[in-house]
């Protein structure tokens, strides 16, 4: 499977996660988001940016409850809760947002 971004083919696995995290760009993220039927807002991008920072530091995509806790710590309880994050990413804030962020499927997500 693959995404077509600006005439370039970006390989992904059967669930849509990028094969090579180095291929990620904002344009790639927008295409994946469209594929997921998401209208991206600043609130969505805030989570995406945070996930990429987390991956950069720890070399893993966090499990959903780790993400919720970390978002709460960084952005406060009004964003650091399941309801808010599931509203942004209905198919799971960790799984779906990680896909858009170009990260692998979260470790510890079953």
């Amino acid at each position: 499977m693959s995404y077509e971004v600006n005439g370039k083919t970006i390989e992904c696995d059967e669930e849509g996660y990028l094969e090579d995290i180095g291929e990620w760009s904002l344009d790639v993220a927008k295409i994946i988001a469209k594929d997921e039927n998401l209208d991206m807002t600043d609130e969505h991008w805030e989570v995406i940016d945070y996930l990429r920072e987390y991956y950069d530091e720890y070399q893993i995509a966090p499990a959903v409850r780790v993400l919720v806790k970390a978002i709460k710590k960084k952005f406060g309880p009004e964003k650091g809760n399941n309801k808010y994050l599931y509203e942004l990413f209905p198919y799971g804030p960790a799984k779906q947002a990680c896909k858009i962020a170009g990260l692998p499927k979260p470790t510890g997500c079953v």
Binding site: E57, Y58, Q59, I60, P62, A63, V66, K69, A70, G108
Partner: peptide, 9 residues
């Protein structure tokens, strides 16, 4: 660096 994330888990 992933060992540093264990506390989050």
């Amino acid at each position: 660096s992933t060992y540093k994330a264990l506390g989050d888990y």
